[in-house]
Write a protein that binds this DNA or RNA. Structure first.
Lengths: 360, 360
DNA sequence: TTGTAAGCGTTATCAA
DNA sequence: TTGATAACGCTTACAA
């Protein structure tokens, strides 16, 4: 409540200039008119309040309130060339680990005033390319894609963006060698596959199976499977790799039990799954049929879905840094934007959680 | 491969005009220069190819390819006043029903060339208001918010947007009376609460409980609980309402069992839960303690989470039209944009799935 | 501390 | 069928 050296004209209605195609909202010019300064002063006040004289600032403040001014970011971006919008492409969001990542990404970007432009690709490289092209039209401040495998066109677009100074990040994977073209924030799925094999081998299992994702394009799952099989075979174990049926992955996990017991001449004693949904399904079906878990069949999942540890027996799994990936991605984006450097990747820790379903 | 009446100048390097602060990408002007027409002709070709002469079109087509032109949507929006971006605010995305909705929304918007600007609110009305203000700066083509309850400031912003012709949609709820200010796409949670009560009453239960969400701001869960309790009491049943502990909802469901058995003088015989996570936790804990389900305790969930039907006994629940809400929202947005009318709401069907945990 | 002028890349309007 | 011109709302560069 301080005295106002130069009071604003008393107005019943804010003096909106009748723009040719204006959409009714107050613009900088409206605010400036009311505050009796020019647009640029208002713009300055909004960006660097300290550089505006206190009395002027006060008038502007009031004018902003009266007009309920809301900056047009399109115009701002067009003029400045820098947006505060991060484009992210993920395979899906429904009951998947990517939901956690996107959630964390969104929450971590918000305090920095960055918005999230989101597109789902359904694990399709073609859709990824389409969506990337669409999203690039907004000149995003940074681009986040999932995984390292992209269509050639996608790769070109990403490289062009990176060459133009836009940070590009690949999430949910991390291969330091060979030197990746973009920052990677995630973990090495081959290492996870090896650890899964070692865990089951250490428990004495020699007849193993990897129940892979039904999604042909889930390359990370396949990669874990390949590493799992290689490690197991190197240790002299027998490994069967089978692919889950399409459809509800819990169902697929349940139905996989038959395949596992039929296919192997001698029954498999331990199964590693591409995700916890398959693992839960398999575990529940095994229990429903009276199989002892882990006695007759050990089950190991991946993803640490919330329900797994509440089952009886609790599902052993790999805890993935799903939310951490989102947070780390936001931080990498912020750092890259702040210092105008390319984004920097990180390897994030995962953990194999040995629970009852593999003998604790 | 048709003859080109007026061939493009052969160029090793596309002639990028050295813009004052250009960010390297080709603009309409670059394409026009190369095609030897003016910007507006290229713009026309892009929007209405039919209105451009075939020979000109061909030259433009080649120029577009050579320059790898990608339209700047900021500039387009600024000039035209219409964006193709839908802003959506949801409480969260991690392992929740909203993941399904956002996924479906994203997929349904994509074919229409609409992009999704997403923000999560964490069930906080304050964050909803902040995020809405942020997102409005992009002048979205439509605005999607979750639920009917908003902070006063949010309401003002939404009303201003709607008054300005921007479709505003509230999802995940539907109250036709009193006439809602915005289009609602969802279902009536009171009706669900009543149906949950009737289901348990019909199975003969007279000592009921509603295990509410720990999230104070999950008003829809509370509303279901209120309707549940009212219906049960009207039928002469006893109803206890308790709130789940904060933290992992499966854990909260498990821990609720003690509360249920302690608090009631006479033990509760059936529990309706605010969501399936609580329901699963409760069911699993009851089984772990050797309680017969539904014999000693019937459990009813909400949300139809994928795992519920695989438990033993399978969890009875309410199937919510999570994905349908996303699809219907996209359709309503498209229709509103096409005909320039306010968005129209829809009541979507839900279903109570009677499974084994309430006696089938 | 404030203002002027020019432009960001596109589309609307009107004229040719 | 094509073009000239003037916006859209904001920011940069430079001047006062």
């Amino acid at each position: 409540m301080q005295a106002n050296p130069k009071p604003l004209p008393a107005l019943a209605d804010p003096p909106m200039r009748p723009g040719r195609r204006g959409h009714g909202r107050a613009t900088l010019a409206d605010v400036a008119l009311l505050a009796e300064v020019t647009k640029i002063t208002v713009s300055r006040y909004l960006r660097e309040p300290a550089t505006v004289a206190p009395a002027t600032a006060e008038r502007i403040r009031q004018a902003l309130q009266r007009t309920a001014y809301m900056p047009n970011k399109q115009a701002g971006l067009l003029a400045s060339g820098r947006s505060r919008m991060v484009a992210a492409l993920v395979p899906n969001l429904d009951h998947s680990v990517f939901g956690e990542t996107v959630q964390a990404l969104s929450e971590s970007l918000q305090p920095a005033g960055l918005e999230l432009l989101l597109a789902s690709t359904g694990y399709s490289q073609a859709r990824e390319e389409e969506q990337l092209a669409a999203v690039l039209g907004w000149a995003p401040a940074a681009i986040v894609v999932t995984g390292r495998q992209h269509a050639p066109g996608t790769l070109r677009l990403l490289q062009a963006a990176a060459a133009g100074g836009t940070p590009v990040l690949e999430i949910w994977d991390h291969h330091p060698q060979p030197e990746p073209p973009f920052a990677q924030i995630g973990f090495d799925h081959r290492a996870v596959g090896r650890a899964m094999a070692r865990h089951l081998l250490a428990a004495g299992h020699r007849r193993l199976a990897y129940l892979d994702s039904s999604v042909a394009e889930d390359l990370r799952a396949h990669q874990r499977g390949a590493a799992f099989a290689a490690t197991a075979r190197a240790a002299g174990a027998r490994v069967q790799r089978l692919r889950a049926a399409t459809g509800d992955p819990f169902d697929a996990g349940r139905r996989a039990l038959d395949g596992l017991r039929r296919a192997a001449g001698q029954a498999v004693s331990a199964v590693a799954c591409a995700n916890d949904q398959l693992g839960c399904g398999l575990l529940l079906e095994a229990r429903a049929r009276g199989l002892a878990v882990p006695g007759q069949l050990a089950v190991l999942g991946f993803g640490d879905f919330p329900v797994g540890r509440h089952l009886a027996p609790a599902l052993s799994t790999v805890h993935t840094p799903s939310a951490e990936i989102g947070r780390a991605t936001a931080q990498a984006v912020l750092a890259a934007l702040q210092y105008r450097t390319p984004a920097v990747g990180t390897a994030l820790p995962w953990a194999l959680l040995a629970r009852a379903s593999t003998g604790g």
